[in-house]
Structure formats: structure tokens, C-alpha cells
Design a protein around this nucleic acid. Structure first.
Length: 685
RNA sequence: GGCGGGAUAGCUCAGAUGGUUAGAGCGUCGGAUUCAUAACCCGGAGGUCACGAGUUCAACUCUCGUUCCCGCUACCA
């Protein structure tokens, strides 16, 4: 295995249009933080880079909605996010933002560099343009009717009602979200990064060179590479972002996915500029082949960090590439997908209001149940159980027992270590073996197992006390009692070290109780951390039990969110603009009987209907297969359809019309079916 | 439909390159104990490793097929 001199750790830049929640923490920031702390404890050269991602269209939309400037939005969330990370002890060496001056300069230079080397392809395409506002419209800035579910408030990139992704040209009745005017198509020029040119290089580098990457990461990369890569636009027509640094170009900015990962580099530069004596020249962290670059991300970011960003770095030519990209899966909350827009989340700043000073509890639980190999579920009941049964009952309890006994029998001073028996030696040796186990696991990014091993050391301590029974021995052998407690206290000191990367706040508290200064990883396994006669502080509880009522309150809070969501989803869509009666009469809507209905092969959503329309019959395709798993049961029933659409080919079949369905609050579709049997071909008027 | 990931004890999850009785924590049942936040400690029960074939002396582990979940992708007048 290749050895490195230093490590650059990055964790995905959180998008500054909302606060951060437990999913972010569990999947990205805690693992990265554990790793960074671990390397620092080992005395290795390491930096941990973070920052907010503040450009992009969603932020401009949110700003518009609230009547604020985009800068106001990112200022707000940047400070909330930054504070949450500080509160949870995420130990960034720098936490900056992509609206910083440094970043503007670095990102521009990066673009310029590729531009001058001829690494981009220029392409002209037609895009929607708002003549009234005098600007091109980002996909998100175009609203219109979703062609699938007819939701009137669909966006140009996606319909939030039915969840389908769209392209702006698919929208019916497109409207500019800025001025409300009808946009027109207009030519615009953009720069593209020709990913297809990096196909061979990437295949070789990842598929051949990095078979050790996690299966989910490797698999996803393979999937993309097998599909074949396409050029990707690196600029957009927008006024929020880094201006494209090309003479004569106006109204264009770097596309956010291009600008964001460069943020890792600019934040590193900012950090080095602020503390050159500590961090040195920034290029050591990004250009020295002896530096190991690691990206901690969630699974949604795999493509960017394994395909796109490496292509950018490669195109630039002077940068190192990531050595590994330990991407995690997603964390669910009480059985449902975490969702910012649906407020289905545990927000970090809210957690600390309800559980002040208990950030380590969340850190512990999220690591114990981290989505390392597949999506996992966070439940408050599990949270409570892990706290009460593990942190309190195993770790806290052992420490408390050792300290209280020492207080009681030796007035809070570390007693002498007498002659050791085999059991004592075994227990002390366990500290050393735990060290090795934890190292092996952390080195391979197995954080949950590593933490489990740390907890095992506390279990060993409890068992040691139960077996040696110092409270009995003290009655006739004070010296032996002292030895037992000495061993127990050394064990407690070791716990403070081994838990340091995982539970930094608790380790600090424990060190305070033991009157110990900061320790380093190398000390782990030592049995002389506390000298004889060393005075301990008065014992406190390391963790507190969490009672049922506090958990019930959290569950109730979530239930209320759920109810609020359900009732709000029932809000009918706003009424459409008036149409004339003549317009309506041009539509020919009819009733027909389903003669046959079957799934279209190789199409997930399509059902093929054969309809008796009283006029010789016709075939219509409809995208409702998901809601009618047994299409044959529709045979013999009647449906309504638009009869006078021109035929359209779908999946090689001519569809002669459109079958009418109504949309339910959850986005599912239900056929409109007459209650009373009607003549086939009957017109709906 | 294509591609990728997953399916292991009641629950949440581990199980490199195939090899003796498949693991952990929690929960449950029983025992022991009282220094400790009724905590700790010991023991038991509990799994046809999604399903069906195949390769092999041997498969949870490899191959093929099927079912279900997650993601990307195609399709959605």
C-alpha cells in the first residue's frame, strides 16, 4: 500500500439554503471528523477542509420568495450551519464559503487555466429568455404545467408534485418566474467540460486502479462509465455566482457544480494564508503526490467527486486526485426519508435546544448506526436505548464506579499498583489490543465497528470490577484494593483516549475528572497514565439518563410535522387562467370501454389500453402503471379520454389520445371512471 | 426495461480472498451481585443467512434466474 506524508480531508460543502440535519452529520461530517481527529491524535499532518456552498439557482429562488437578496439567504444559513458544526465539535481547520473573495479569485483562475489550455468545448444552444427581465432563465426559473401530472406549478427542471425530472422545453405554458411573462427561445453560448474525453482515463484510474473503493462508490462509477460520459456545461446564464472570466462575456456565471468543489481548494488557500506558520503553502495540500486527498460525501455526490471533479483536476493538470472517496448511504428518520422541504428532519440547532450539552450522545448514536453500507434508520427509541444502555450503563457507569470507589477508599488519590496477577495483566494488555483493533478499523473507514471496539474497553472494565470485587476485598486487603483501582483508573484514562475521536466532549470531561492533560494516541495502551498519589477531581456523571418523556416529546414533534404535511398537501392547486367556451369545445372528450389493458414491455410507467370508443376502437398509452399493478382488472370498465389529440408514438406504439386521471395529494393518479355505464363514444360536454 | 447497491436472529446491524458448532449490541428469559445513574456481571432461548437452480469434496460467501427495497437512467399527451 502506498504511504503518504500528509492527508487532506474534505467533507461535502453543505448547500446554504437550509440548516444541517442528522443525515448530513451521520453520513459525512461525523465520519470525516472522527478520521481527522484520529490522524491528529496520531500526530500526522492533516487538514480538514469545510465550507458552505452558496451559489446556484435554488438560493436565488428562495431569496426571491422571501423578498431578500441571495446574499442575505446565504449569510443566514452560513452562520447557522457554521455554528451547528462548531457546537457539535466538527473540527474543521477552516470553514469558509464560496462567496468569499478568495474563492471568487481561485475559481476564476481555475476556469481561466482550463480555458486557456483549450480544455473546454464551446457550444451554442437555445434556451428560454425573459425579454421583459432581459435575462436567460435557469431551469428552476421557468414554471409551467407539468406534462405528466398537470401540476401548474412545475419547475423547468422538476415537477415537485409528481417528482419527475423535466427539461424546460417539456413544460406546457411556460412562464418566467421572474416577470411572469412568456419566455422566448434564444441562442446562448456556453462552455462544456468534455467528460467523454476523460472516459478512458477515468476507467483506468477507478475501475483498474481503485478496486478497493467501497462497493457502492465503485459500482456507481462503473455504472456511469458504462453508460458513456457526455460533455457537461460549466457555465449558466445567471447573475448569482462567479462571473465567467472571459473578456466580453456578461450575464454568465460558473455552474454551481463547477464552482463548489473548487471551494475545497480556495478554503485551503484561505486557511494557509491566515496561518502560514501552521499550515505552510497551500499547494502542499493539493499538488504534492505525497499528499493523500480524501473526500467524505453522501451517496448523492459520488458522481461529482469521482467523475467530474477528478476530470477537472486532471484537465488542469497540476493537482493530485482523490485517493479515496468514502461515501455513505442515507439515513432515514423514523422510517421515512429525511426531507428538508417537508421538514422531516432532526435539525442540529433544534437538537441542541432540546438536549443541551449532549452533542456526544448524538455523535455516538449516529456513528453506532451510521449508514456505511446501506440506508439506515434513526429512531428516537434507539437513540434513547443507546444512551441509556451503552453510554450511561457501560461507559459512564464504569468510570463512575472506578472514581467513586477511589474516592471512598483512597480519598480521591490514585492508589499504588502492587503485585499484578494474571487477570490484571490481561486487562492491561486488552488496552493495547484495543488500540490495534481500532486503528485497523479506522484506517479502513469502519467507524461504527471502531467505536464498538472502544465501547468494549468499558465493558472489559465493568467485568473487571465485577470479577475482582474491590468492595469486598477492601474489608481485609487495602493494598490489593488499591491495585485493582489503579488498574481500573488506568483503564478509564485509556477510555478517554480511545473515545477522543468519537466523543471529544466526553473525553475532555473525563480528563478533567482524572486531572489529566491532553493525551495522544500513542499513549493508548499505557498503564502508567495516572501516577501513584495523583489527585483526582470529584466524580461527576459522564452521561445522563434520558427519560421517556423527553423521547415522547420528540416523537410527538415529528408526528405533528407529519400531520401538518398531510393537511397541507390537501391544498388544491390554484385555478388556471380563464379560457373561452370555444376553446373548451375544441377538446373532444369521450367515454370508452377498456377492451384490453396491459403493461408496455420495457417501460415502467406505461399501460397500453385498447379502447372501444364506438368508432372502431383505438389504442391509448397512459403513464399510470405504478398505480394499477393489475391492469387486467380494468378490462370491461369505462374510462374517459381526450379523443382529438394527434397520435403520438411512445415506445414504438401509436397512442391515439389521452386517458384522464385525477391526481391525489400524494401525487398518485386515479382513473376518472363513469359510475353508470354509458355508450361507448359518448361525448363529455 | 437497463445499470449499480442491498435483502443475515424480535429490532438495528457486522460477516477480506468459499472450509470446523453463522456473529455483535439491544430486546427477551433465567441466574448472580450491590461499589455504581435499579446500572453492572454470568448463562439460556432465538437464524432452512429473501427464493429457486447450478458450480464445488465444501457456499451466507462464486454463477444464473426470480421476488422485494434504495439510487441513477429510459419511458410518462
Amino acid at each position: 500500500m502506498k504511504t503518504f506524508k500528509r492527508t487532506t480531508i474534505t467533507s461535502a460543502l453543505p448547500y446554504a439554503n437550509g440548516p444541517v440535519h442528522i443525515g448530513h452529520l451521520a453520513g459525512v461530517y461525523i465520519p470525516a471528523d472522527i478520521y481527522a481527529r484520529y490522524l491528529r491524535l496520531r500526530g500526522e499532518e492533516v487538514v480538514y477542509i469545510g465550507g458552505s456552498d452558496e451559489h446556484g439557482v435554488p438560493i436565488t429562488i428562495k431569496a426571491r420568495k422571501e423578498g431578500l437578496r441571495p446574499q442575505d439567504i446565504v449569510d443566514r444559513y452560513h452562520s447557522i450551519i457554521k455554528k451547528s458544526f462548531e457546537d457539535f465539535g466538527i473540527s474543521f481547520d477552516v470553514y469558509s464559503r464560496t462567496t468569499s473573495d478568495t474563492h471568487k479569485q481561485v475559481a476564476s483562475e481555475f476556469f481561466r487555466s482550463l480555458y486557456e489550455k483549450g480544455k473546454f468545448v464551446e457550444k451554442t444552444s437555445e434556451q428560454y429568455y425573459d425579454a421583459e427581465a432581459g435575462q436567460f432563465l435557469a431551469d428552476r426559473y421557468i414554471t409551467g404545467t407539468c406534462p405528466h401530472c398537470k401540476n401548474e406549478a412545475a419547475y423547468g427542471d422538476q415537477c415537485e408534485q409528481c417528482g419527475t425530472s423535466l427539461s424546460p422545453t417539456e413544460l406546457l405554458n411556460p412562464k418566467s418566474a421572474i416577470s411572469g411573462s412568456v419566455p422566448v427561445m434564444r441562442e446562448t453560448k456556453h462552455w462544456y467540460l468534455p467528460l467523454d474525453q476523460y472516459q478512458d482515463f477515468l476507467s483506468d484510474w477507478i475501475l483498474q486502479g481503485h478496486k478497493e473503493w467501497k462497493p457502492n462508490v465503485y459500482g456507481q462509477c462503473k455504472s456511469w462509465l458504462d453508460m458513456g460520459l457526455q460533455p457537461r456545461a460549466v457555465s449558466r446564464d445567471l447573475d448569482w455566482g462567479i462571473p465567467v472570466p472571459v473578456a466580453g462575456v456578461e450575464g454568465k456565471v460558473l455552474y454551481v457544480w463547477f464552482d463548489a468543489p473548487i471551494g475545497y481548494i480556495s478554503n485551503t488557500q484561505e486557511m494557509c494564508a491566515a496561518q502560514p506558520e501552521k499550515y505552510g503553502n497551500w499547494e502542499r495540500w493539493w499538488k504534492d503526490p505525497e499528499t493523500r486527498l480524501l473526500h467524505f460525501i453522501g451517496k448523492d455526490n459520488i458522481v461529482f467527486h469521482c467523475i467530474v471533479f477528478p476530470s477537472m483536476l486532471r484537465a488542469e493538470g497540476t493537482y493530485i486526485l482523490p485517493e479515496n472517496v468514502p461515501a455513505n448511504e442515507f439515513l432515514n428518520l423514523e422510517g421515512d426519508k429525511i426531507s428538508t422541504s417537508r421538514n422531516w428532519a432532526v435539525w442540529l440547532h433544534e437538537y441542541l435546544e432540546d438536549f443541551p450539552g449532549q452533542q456526544d450522545v448524538l455523535r455516538y448514536v449516529l456513528t453506532a448506526n451510521a449508514p456505511e453500507t446501506k440506508d439506515n434508520d434513526f429512531t428516537w427509541k434507539d437513540f434513547q436505548a443507546r444512551n441509556n444502555n451503552e453510554l450511561v450503563a457501560i461507559y459512564g457507569n464504569f468510570v463512575n464506579r472506578a472514581l467513586v470507589l477511589t474516592q471512598k477508599y483512597f480519598d480521591g488519590c490514585v492508589p499504588a499498583l502492587g503485585a499484578l496477577d494474571d487477570y490484571d495483566r490481561q486487562v492491561l494488555a486488552d488496552c493495547a489490543s484495543i488500540k490495534e483493533k481500532v486503528e485497523t478499523l479506522l484506517d479502513s473507514f469502519h467507524f461504527r465497528d471502531a467505536q464498538k471496539e472502544a465501547m468494549n474497553l468499558a465493558r472489559i472494565g465493568n467485568k473487571y470490577l465485577a470479577d475482582t470485587e474491590p468492595w469486598k476485598v477492601v474489608k481485609n486487603d487495602l493494598k490489593r484494593t488499591g491495585s485493582i483501582l489503579n488498574v481500573s483508573l488506568q483503564l478509564a484514562a485509556n477510555l478517554a483516549i480511545v473515545f477522543e475521536p468519537f466523543l471529544p466532549f466526553s473525553s475532555e470531561k473525563l480528563r478533567r475528572m482524572l486531572h489529566l492533560n491532553a493525551l495522544v494516541w500513542r499513549d493508548l495502551g499505557r498503564t502508567d497514565l495516572l501516577p501513584e498519589g495523583h489527585r483526582l477531581a470529584a466524580p461527576e456523571l459522564l452521561f445522563e439518563k434520558i427519560e421517556d418523556n423527553r423521547i415522547e416529546a420528540q416523537v410527538k414533534k415529528l408526528q405533528e410535522t407529519k400531520h401538518a404535511n398531510e393537511s397541507s398537501e390537501y391544498r388544491p392547486q390554484p385555478q388556471k387562467a380563464d379560457v373561452s367556451f370555444e376553446d373548451f369545445t375544441r377538446l373532444d372528450i369521450r367515454v370508452g370501454t377498456v377492451l384490453d389493458c396491459r403493461k408496455v414491455p420495457k417501460a415502467d410507467k406505461l399501460l397500453e389500453f385498447r379502447i372501444d370508443d364506438g368508432m372502431g376502437g383505438r389504442t391509448i398509452l397512459s403513464g399510470i402503471a405504478a398505480y394499477y399493478p393489475k391492469p387486467e382488472e380494468l378490462i370491461g370498465t369505462q374510462v374517459c379520454f381526450v379523443a382529438n389529440f394527434p397520435p403520438r408514438k411512445l415506445r414504438g406504439i401509436d397512442s391515439e389520445g389521452m386517458i384522464l386521471s385525477a391526481e391525489n395529494p400524494d401525487g398518485s393518479l386515479t382513473l376518472i371512471q363513469p359510475k353508470k355505464e354509458l355508450s361507448n363514444g359518448a361525448a363529455i360536454v
